[in-house]
Design a protein around this nucleic acid. Sequence first.
RNA 1: GGUGGGGUGGCUGAGUGGCCGAAAGCGGCAGUCUUGAAAACUGUUGAGGGUUUGUAGCCCUCCUAGGGUUCGAAUCCCUACCCCACCGCCA
Length: 424
Amino acid sequence: MLDQKTVRTQPEAIAEALKKRGYSLDIAALKQLEAERRSVQGKTEELQQQSNSRAKNIGKAKAAGEDIAPLLAEVGQLKKDLAAAEHELAAVQASLETLLAGIPNIPADSVPEGLSEDDNVELRTWGTPRQFDFDVVDHVDLGDALGGLDFATATKLTGSRFAVMSGGIARLHRALAQFMLDTHISEHGYTEVNVPFIVNSDSLYGTGQLPKFAEDLFKLSDDRDLYLIPTAEVPITNMLRGDIIDDADLPLKFVAHTPCFRSEAGSHGRDTRGMIRQHQFEKIELVQFVRPDESDAALEGLTACAEAILQKLELPYRTVILCGGDIGFSSTKTFDIEVWVPSQDKYREISSCSSFGDFQARRMMTRYRNPESGKPELVHTVNGSGLAVGRTLLAVLENHQNADGSVTVPAALQPYMGGLDVIK
RNA sequence: GGUGGGGUGGCUGAGUGGCCGAAAGCGGCAGUCUUGAAAACUGUUGAGGGUUUGUAGCCCUCCUAGGGUUCGAAUCCCUACCCCACCGCCA
């Protein structure tokens, strides 16, 4: 959520900044609601004040032993007016709140112009896509031949966009998760957390998935208003919802390994083959809470942590900065890391690292006590995948495949595979 | 599942209808003292919002959340969520 005061007082400037996203802010509606809010709030507070002072007078009169009956008679109409005004105010504030909560974050200055992913800008590449001297097989056929990747059975168990892994591939998948987690803990200074995979709507509101993107989530039919997490970003970031953090504790860096559940509504027919787009996948998520002036550096650092995993796994990748039209709702700046997928002859997203500025912090009321002002001020949040495990598995299988259908285990993973160097 | 007790500021914890945005302590901040620090002492210290040129003043709201009673609610009633204790059941 953007700062209400800024939105209200400088709607034109906000609207201009949001154009970079291709978002058009309804200034007229905003101004109208704001004018209404102002008058209704003024009226309500005046009535509240009257009501308060009369109640006090009644208290004094009673204490003095006076007859309070005439005073009581006076407040009848006031109470009715006040109730009506409060009702009206609540309605206006709810409308304003809905409008404000639906406004996306403002892209950072460094975010390039553009409306689609075609306008994203490549920042750097690492490694060189391998030249194969045999016909490249995609991970679905590779996995099928190895007997460890089975989509048909998963369809029987659940439906489309699920997979059953077994044997060496299941172990490789687990090894990848462990390896990433260990690397971030011991080499990058993150604290491991283990969090719930089911969250309430307040948490989803805090990180920005709700109220706008409910259709992307799996909601439990249980009447407790609970959802499966679409990413560990939600539980980790919300750990500090409503809290005031000690300045000395910043920056806070957390890493978690969780499953992620996404309905993929609206992506029917996209990436239907293989592990690219699943309803359930595992991810190692990195989250940082930082002081406002440190978020740019934190985003660079966090992205480097994610890239380090790909380097250790000897997987070629490139890093792009998303253009204004392609960044997520809550993000002010996003770097996507894309791994080389040989069967598709192109780079595919494997990590998305974003800075949210104070956008999430404002929704969550997560603050730190600024030693200079002594006041609680909003922190900045930064997060990213480090990495998506399923897509990494796919990349390892395809990039390290051999002519005989076997897959070479990258050296970094071998300790996690009991020393195994080839999956056959 | 049963019974009972609770959820108050950064933290601990008082407060059972008006004098309570809220005692006290801790912590924080400022000062005195000190070569410096600690200790001690003194003062100060919740958050959000409205109005406003204003970090001035005035005003509103907030004691888990949502309803209710009342002229008036941290305080009484109802509901939800959470915590604690004991009992039962069980991995």
